[in-house]
Amino acid sequence: MSAAKGELSSFVIGMGRVALLACEVVRSLSSVRLNWAEFIKQMHFIGLKSQFVVLTTGASTGMVFCAQTFYQFHKVKMDTATLSVVGVAMTSELGPVLAGLMVAGRVGAAMTAEIGTMRVTEQIDALRTMATHPVDHLVVPRVLATVISMPLLTVLAWVVGIFAAMILASSLLGIESAFSLKHMYFYTDAEDVVMGVIKALVFGLLISLISCYRGLNCTNGAEGVGRATNEAVVQSCIAILVSNFFLTLFLRSLLYPG
């Protein structure tokens, strides 16, 4: 019990420090010129190189979700409603959350490991002695690149997931595609799309800030880098899942006021 309390309190303290890091990022963005070379490098690493993992996850989830929904709906003769459920779920929930979890695992871990190694090998101290703020040089390009990449990767997950579900539905499950597509367009609102994009932006911000924070505060050599990387991925995933719940409630009340 006391161990769980300790974990919780360190998580809350950590989140407070991540919030302070976010303030420093805002200060840097408003007063220091962006390091474009690092930003482009990070966009390539985060946005472009994460496509395969997000694409695979999106396609797999879309198909599995379509199949499971079909088997339940088929019992009550609602086969053509299958794709509308897939559409709503992929755009507002599964797309951003799964893309977020994949990016946290792939990109967040790499960010923490790279910055953490720089920290324990005194490269960050070297940066500081060369009149360079680590937040300006390391954190801001990563945060911007993740925040921009996440919505794009989420859209990729939607498109691939829904497309894969459509192919499965029409070719293997025998669902009438004209009706099911019409239902999908009817039930998937623009608000679902907006909600998904907003969630992706927030998740991108959380992943990058948590990962950079863990890297910047890494100690104890190689073991410390390993521990920081592990903590960054676990905390990013928890932050995504917890914030997703509150974002769903908040955005529902905001986007669907009636």
Binding site: E122, D125, A126, A131
Partner: peptide, 24 residues
């Protein structure tokens, strides 16, 4: 603050024990 210190640090050069070269 860290930002105020940046201008003071321009006066310095430092050779670290492990060289601390940027490996990227």
């Amino acid at each position: 603050s860290e930002r105020q210190m940046l201008s003071v640090r321009q006066k310095f050069g430092m050779l670290f024990q492990g060289a601390a070269l940027f490996d990227s």
